[in-house]
């Protein structure tokens, strides 16, 4: 890849008159040695799996194996049909779709890790709802995935994308930043605006700990995906309106690394702190352990 930072990414795109998505597709084909058409078709098949996960989460039983979660996407979707959502109809729909995909994940269904399974709802939530809203064809969204991937590539290599290494900020935070940047570009923003969206979004999740109840990717992961989709839309709107990240986005990525490295182990996916160790969290964990020991 010819870029290691977001600044380099935006500068390359602007110098060559390309979108982030176009540049990423070219660079990807060079890196893999496969044709751009082959790489495109892999990404297009991934988008198909995302749409299928949204559909499944809205229509099928997504009760998880633990019984802790499931069907919240359908609750929000039903509410949306009969009420005026406080966040507005479109953001509420993105939220419902993000919950749907995360619930499919928790019930051992098929998803695309974006960048991880714990944060797999945010990009499909934003993308699939935007496709319906703006009438985009699939190809436009596949481009969006290449754009999101370019952003994630920089974040992952300069910081981290696993909760065990850097907390929830590294998973949900990175996914929001990727969705925000991609949404900015999909709606006609410049590469530089997309990069500002990344910094704006990431600042809002710095410090978010990974504290899964019972060690499961369920509570609070699923609702954080729902919130994440709404945050991504907000960051894209700010960037498209011309709001800039006063601290350059690459420096925000470095802060995420600093904060994640300083995070205590109990707040990095070990279920030894945070919500996992509340009285209710502990009670749930001991009930799960009891159930597991039964033959």
């Amino acid at each position: 890849m010819r870029f290691r930072t977001l600044q380099q990414l935006a500068a390359l795109c602007e110098a060559e008159g390309k979108t982030i998505a176009d540049l990423m597709l070219e660079e990807q084909a060079k890196e893999s040695g496969r044709s751009p058409e082959k790489e495109w078709s892999t990404m297009a098949s991934y988008y198909g799996i995302m749409k299928e996960a949204v559909r499944k989460g809205l229509t099928e039983d997504t009760t998880s194996r633990s019984g802790l979660t499931g069907l919240d996407a359908q609750r929000v979707n039903t509410y949306l049909g009969s009420h005026e959502a406080s966040v507005g109809e479109e953001a509420c729909r993105a939220m419902a779709y993000a919950l749907a995909v995360s619930e499919v994940n928790a019930s051992m269904g098929r998803i695309i890790a974006t960048p991880t399974a714990g944060s797999c709802g945010i990009i499909p939530g934003v993308f699939v709802s935007a496709q319906e809203r703006f009438g985009w064809d699939d190809d436009h969204l596949v481009k969006g995935l290449f754009c999101a991937g370019a952003i994630g590539y920089v974040v992952a290599n300069n910081s981290f994308v696993s909760g065990a290494e850097g907390g929830c900020q590294a998973e949900v935070g990175s996914a929001i930043a990727m969705a925000a940047g991609a949404m900015t570009e999909l709606r006609g923003g410049t590469p530089s605006q997309a990069v500002h969206a990344v910094g704006l979004a990431l600042k809002n999740t710095l410090g978010l700990i990974c504290d899964p109840v019972g060690g499961l990717v369920e509570v609070p992961c699923i609702v954080r995906n729902g919130f994440g989709a709404v945050n991504a839309l907000a960051a894209a709107d700010m960037a498209l309106a011309g709001v800039r990240s006063a601290i350059p986005s690459d420096e925000v990525v470095t802060v995420m690394y600093e904060v994640g490295s300083a995070m205590p182990e109990k707040h990095r996916e070990t279920a030894k702190g945070g919500l996992a160790q509340t009285p209710t969290g502990k009670k749930i964990m001991s009930e799960l352990n009891l159930r597991r020991k039964k033959p």
């Binding site: 990404m43 269904g109 098929r110 974006t114 399974a117 999101a148 590539y153």
Partner: peptide, 22 residues
């Protein structure tokens, strides 16, 4: 670079629930 390409970020297609743990 720990992450080499776009599909190490978008992907894999997988059965949930955790990309690191599953």
């Amino acid at each position: 670079m720990r992450f080499k390409d776009v599909f190490s970020i978008i992907g894999p297609a997988m059965i949930g629930p955790s990309s690191s743990h599953t």
